[in-house]
Each structure stands twice: as C-alpha cells, then as structure tokens.
C-alpha cells in the first residue's frame, strides 16, 4: 500500500483536473461531491490523518491542508466562470435596437400655457376663479358698461341660445348667450365677494367667427382682477410686467398703449417686444388688454368706487401658445391630432 504522503499529490492532480474541467454547474457539483464532499476521495484521505505516526502527521497535515485550499479555490473559480457563462444571453444583444417604449400622455398645449399663467399669478397671491359659460346678457354686457346697442352684443358677433330663461345664477327672463369673454366672471366674483379681490379666471369663450387660421368659434381667455384700496395704474403695470416676464422671459419689454374698453377707464393695450417678436419681423406685438375697472362697473356690483379701485386685464391663451410655440393655425388646438399634441 502506498503511504498516505505519496497519495496526496496524485489525488490533488486528478481532483484539480476534474473540477476545472467541469462542463456545467451540475458537473461541477458532481466533481465537488467526488472529491471534497463529505464522501469524497480527498475527504477520505483527510480522515486517515489520525492514523499516522507522530512524526509523519505534521508533514502530511500541512500538505493536505494546502491541497484542500487549492481545490476549494479551483471549485470557486470554476463556479464563478460557469455562472457567468450561464447568465450570458443565448443570442447576442444588439444594443442599438429600439426598446419597448412606455409612452407618457401629454397635456394639451393650451392646458400647459394656462397652467404657466396661473402659476405666475398664484406666485403673487391670486386665486383661480370660474363661472358659467352660458351667461345672460347682463353679466356679459350690461354689468360691464357695454351700451345696449353696442355692436358686440349683435347676433352677428355673439352666440345666443334658443332658450331664454334662467341658467343657474342668472337673471330670469334675460337672453342667454355664450360668454364672449371671461370678464363676465369678473362681475360674478365681484357680486359674490367683498373686496379686496384678487383672482385670475381662465376659461372658454365664444365669438361668432367662422373658423380660419386665426379664429375659432371657441377659444380661451384668462382674466386677472385686483380690487383693493388705492390700487393704481402703477400697480397694474407692475403686475403685468411681472407676469409677462415670468411667462415670456425676463428679456421681454412691455409697452402700454391707451385704448378703449367699456369696462375699464383708463384702458390700455399691452404690447411686448422680445427676440421672438423681432424674429417675426415686428418691434411690438399686441398681447393683452387692460385697464382700471370703470367706476360704473363697481357701482353695478355694489362697490363704492370712492373707496375701492382696481384693475383688470385679459388675454387670449391661444395667442400666447401660438407665439410661444410658433403655431400658425388656431384650429390645430381643437383637432386632437396626435402629431400635433405630442409636440408639447
């Protein structure tokens, strides 16, 4: 019989060959069992160590331990290599292939612009207000100091409903119409709240225009109203400048031009100028109307015009969106065309 010492190296060699040569993880496990498992051949050799003489034992022990460490290292290395190989995809991955897209829906550009405007106003303490789209002629016109025979009230320009009568909160017997501006909500807010008032009113409005690149019978406006003691034209200018710079960039210039609206006095139109307008070949582009709320309007809603002053301004949301994004046809906003909607 070969001495124990003589058996160590041949067994070590055979075990190393078996472990390193395992073709897959299952073969590796088998090889492990064969050699260094509880019933393995190398383990059996270790068990014989106790039978050796006192002189032989330290030498054999040292050799056996070295060999065991060597085999365990070989096992771990082979396992790592086989695990990596097993995880590798069967076919090569083409990293340039398109992935499975998870499309996000997009908010409508008019929603986005409205949100931006509302955000600006809220930063300076405005609340959002709302009112009916079906209005009576009092809230849309009379209360706003629009004379009875003003062309704006004409059936040529304003949509009237077949039904006269009473919409909720409107005066019975008055003709019903689709509001032509969100300014009608200004009246409703002033009627129902005591000053000071600070609201902004986004919403749909209607004019009897045939649809073309710059007109749609339905469009959207936003009005801002501020009533308090000692509100001045200076306040109006300051707020308008703040909002438009917030909205259009701090490099815009804002200009106020005297104008006429029945419900404000003095009245102004607001022009802005920026790199954008210059690109469009214009120094100034009209963007909004505004003014100090007419004392007659205050009287109509029961405010004392001596005690309170205030300003209002309004502008078209489509117009802002068209300028901001370079949209050239207002009808695109209302067609639901995905090629359009996905651009914003």
């Amino acid at each position: 019989m070969m001495s124990l010492l003589d058996q160590i190296d041949p067994l070590r060699q055979a075990a190393l060959a078996d472990l390193s040569g395992a073709a897959d993880l299952a073969a590796l496990e088998r090889a492990k069992g064969n050699w260094i498992g509880p019933h393995g051949q190398f383990t059996a050799l270790l068990k014989q160590l106790g039978a050796l003489s006192k002189e032989e034992r330290p030498v054999a022990g040292k050799q056996l331990n070295q060999a065991k460490t060597e085999l365990e290292t070989a096992l771990a290395e082979r396992r790592r290599a086989l695990e990596l190989a097993a995880a590798a995809p069967k076919e090569p991955t083409d990293f340039t292939l398109p992935g499975r897209r998870r499309p996000l829906g997009k908010l409508h550009p008019l929603t986005q612009v409205t949100e931006d405007i509302v955000r600006s106003f809220r930063r300076i303490g405005f609340a959002v207000a709302d009112g009916p789209e079906i209005e009576d002629d009092y809230h849309c016109f009379d209360a706003l100091n629009t004379p009875a025979d003003h062309p704006a009230r004409d059936t040529h320009d304003t949509f009237y409903l077949e039904a006269a009568g009473a919409a909720p909160g409107s005066t019975p017997g008055r003709p019903l119409l689709l509001r032509t501006h969100t300014t009608s909500v200004q009246v409703r807010v002033l009627e129902s709240q005591r000053p000071p008032v600070r609201v902004v009113v986004p919403g749909r409005v209607y004019r009897r225009d045939n649809a073309d690149a710059t007109h749609n019978p339905t469009f959207q406006q936003i009005d801002g109203v501020y009533v308090d003691r000692d509100v001045t034209v200076g306040d109006l200018k300051g707020t308008v400048e703040f909002v438009f710079k917030d909205l259009l960039g701090s490099d815009v210039k804002i200009r106020f031009r005297p104008h006429y609206f029945s419900y404000t006095e003095p009245s102004f139109e607001i022009d802005f100028s920026s790199a954008l307008t210059r690109k469009m070949g214009k120094d100034w582009l009209e963007i909004a109307g505004c003014g100090m709320i007419h004392p007659q309007v205050f009287e109509n809603v029961g405010y004392d015009p001596e005690a309170w002053t205030g300003w209002a301004f309004g502008f078209g949301i489509e117009r802002i969106a068209m300028i901001r994004y370079g949209v050239n046809d207002i009808r695109l906003f209302y067609e639901g065309d995905l090629r359009f909607l996905r651009q914003f």
Binding site: V118, G125, A129, V231, F242
Partner: peptide
C-alpha cells in the same frame, strides 16, 4: 403711460372657492 412708474405686486391674498377645484 410710459412715464407711470410700475409698482411691484402687493396687497391682499386672493381667495375663491374655485381655487381648489382648479
């Protein structure tokens, strides 16, 4: 109008029932 100095926003904080709905 261009000679009227602009004053920064000031004054009351707005309130309206619709604000939360928005």
């Amino acid at each position: 109008v261009e000679r009227i100095p602009a004053t920064p926003p000031r004054g009351a904080v707005g309130a309206n029932a619709y604000d939360a709905v928005h």
